[in-house]
Design a protein around this nucleic acid. Structure first.
Lengths: 343, 343
DNA sequence: CTGAAAGCGCTAACAC
DNA sequence: GTGTTAGCGCTTTCAG
């Protein structure tokens, strides 16, 4: 291992001069700087981060704290951030929480103990008080999900508008009994999405019916499977359903094939997010496509800049990206019989 | 930050005694150890890893070097490893190579410079000499892919058998003109898979035809799209196709819908791997399901054990897991006309 | 059994 | 402009 000492000996200089030259200190002559830099690259000098960290510097590690990387939303995010970080000499630490606030806390402790340069986090529904404190001590930004206690820096989606558009699409087709299966309200995104669904109905003068709303854990396809069974056993079943999470969409698509629901004649379906395979399903899934990759990229670039030149204050910053409806075959006007029945 | 010095002061001991007690040194009395341990936990002492690293210790970081985490194979692996590592006080560093050996080298340099505890790697087709040397200096294990120069520790799939089984399934149905679209031969897994395909044909007395084999970059769905067009424009087109990579499978499924290929009547298809959505596609995709999660788990557990008690030698260790055929609707006997034509 | 002291590589105060 | 020195928290001689 080549150290500053080696360079100093090689050039008959003191370690401090070498250190200063490498740090581009104003007090060092240009000539010396050049000599030092050259010697450093010749000898293959690589700064010892452990030593720097002992002097209070932070590491080049950025933590990515997310529920589950198998979810295509989060693997896309991991990919985009990893690519950006690698280009900027940062390393990405992967930390999965499974929506468990204690696991989340453990990861944040670990990141804090290792003097992480920063944290990008999609928080659990209700982060632990310790987690809030730990994050206060590290530069961080929230992604997709947000929790007021974790500060005002956030990059996310317009969740309300996404569901509003999805629901409006079904209303335009003539549906009136529209069900919603989505993430529970303890998640901020869950609240927003439910609100979008509700608002769209109200805008059309349709009172939201609580027996058409099925909320559950966002990471569970099973919830959607059970929910759709319940909904279809209803005396006057819905003629359409809107999904409020990727995993619920996956669950519903599986269930529809298992049960043998006829889409769109028996039931129209609007999915959430657009991943490989949604276009293959049955007549093609009409869905809300969301620019996850772009959100992650913006977030990554913004965060890097912040890490490289830390701002004095901690001004809130929000970025909201909108999705768009991708019409495919899974939505159609309700059958006459259904319309009559629901009238 | 609580240090050993603080504990020493608190207990009227020297730092060395505290350090030794925490390291469970034999020379320290049991009583002192107990006192020290108690004080440590009371004061909330957390060892400073930077300081330890300066003394030559390695970090608790395990690098995961893979082509692209958006690929479901690799996101599954990232997930399983991350879960195992978190439980053992290790942290998982995500490093994507995009099958570029220079990016791979950069990641390995970074991991080496940060004294990573170890590396789990799915190597690029032909790793750089520097990468080989860097890995020699770190505990490591190869996953899925293997390269002889990177040592004999490897966890992977029985690639040859997977393709042999897939091809045999089509032969049993009566196909004789069976095409193969898969990863290029510079990838060890690519060679194995092609070999499996070839062997199955030979076992049935059918000479492999080079114009039915389409090799290309494994991460590119586009390659499969172009390949299937070429194959179908053939004067005597194949009646069936076997895929030799997940991305090629995705590409082919997309292309089949775009072009409007009738599956299985016009073309039988056997996919590679089984991910969410494959069962939705058309009549359901017959495919080779592969136990990626299990392979990753075994690999993770084995590697952790190795990190915790490093063995004297570096004996080779190989673990091969087999996949299995999942028959669905995308394969059927060839049409009489096809059979006649190819006869 | 325990303590004192040195040193890992780097940076920052303090000289000149 | 450059050199000297001290110290970050820990482990590890070397003394007792």
């Amino acid at each position: 291992m080549v150290t500053t000492k080696d360079i100093a000996a090689h050039l008959q200089l003191s370690v401090s001069t070498v250190g200063r030259a490498l740090a581009d200190d104003a007090r060092i002559s240009e000539q010396t700087k050049v000599r030092v830099r050259q010697a450093a690259s010749e000898l293959g000098y690589v700064g010892n981060r452990a030593a720097r960290m002992m002097r209070g510097a932070s590491s080049n590690v950025v933590g990515l704290v997310i529920p589950d990387v198998r979810n295509s939303f989060y693997s896309t995010i991991a990919h985009e951030l990893s690519a950006i970080m690698a280009g900027e000499e940062y390393q990405l630490m992967l930390a999965e929480t499974f929506d468990d606030r204690l696991i989340e806390r453990r990861h944040l402790r670990e990141l804090s103990a290792s003097h992480a340069a920063g944290v990008v986090i999609a928080p659990t529904p209700n982060p632990h008080g310790d987690s809030v404190n730990l994050l206060r001590g590290m530069p961080h930004v929230q992604l997709l999900r947000r929790h007021a206690s974790l500060g005002g820096q956030w990059f996310g989606l317009d969740d309300q508008r996404a569901l509003q558009d999805a629901t409006a699409h079904l209303l335009e087709l003539g549906h009136t009994r529209i069900a919603y299966i989505g993430a529970s309200e303890d998640l901020p995104t869950g609240r927003e999405r439910l609100e979008g669904y509700t608002q769209a109905l109200l805008a059309d003068g349709i009172p939201p019916a609580s027996d058409l709303v099925e909320l559950g854990p966002p990471a569970s396809p099973e919830h959607a499977k059970e929910a759709i069974r319940r909904l279809l056993n209803h005396p006057t079943p819905p003629t359409a359903v809107v999904l409020g999470s990727v995993q619920h969409t996956v669950g519903l698509l599986d269930a529809a094939l298992e049960i043998g629901i006829e889409v769109p004649s028996e039931l129209s379906v609007v999915g959430f997010g657009d991943q490989s395979g949604f276009s293959w399903w049955g007549p093609g899934l009409t869905t809300i496509s969301l620019p996850i990759g772009d959100v992650a990229t913006s977030c990554g670039l913004w965060f890097i800049r912040r890490l490289n030149n830390p701002p004095a204050g901690n001004d809130p910053y929000e970025s909201v990206s909108a999705g768009w409806l991708v019409p495919r075959g899974s939505t159609a006007a309700p059958r006459a019989e259904s319309r009559k029945r629901s009238a």
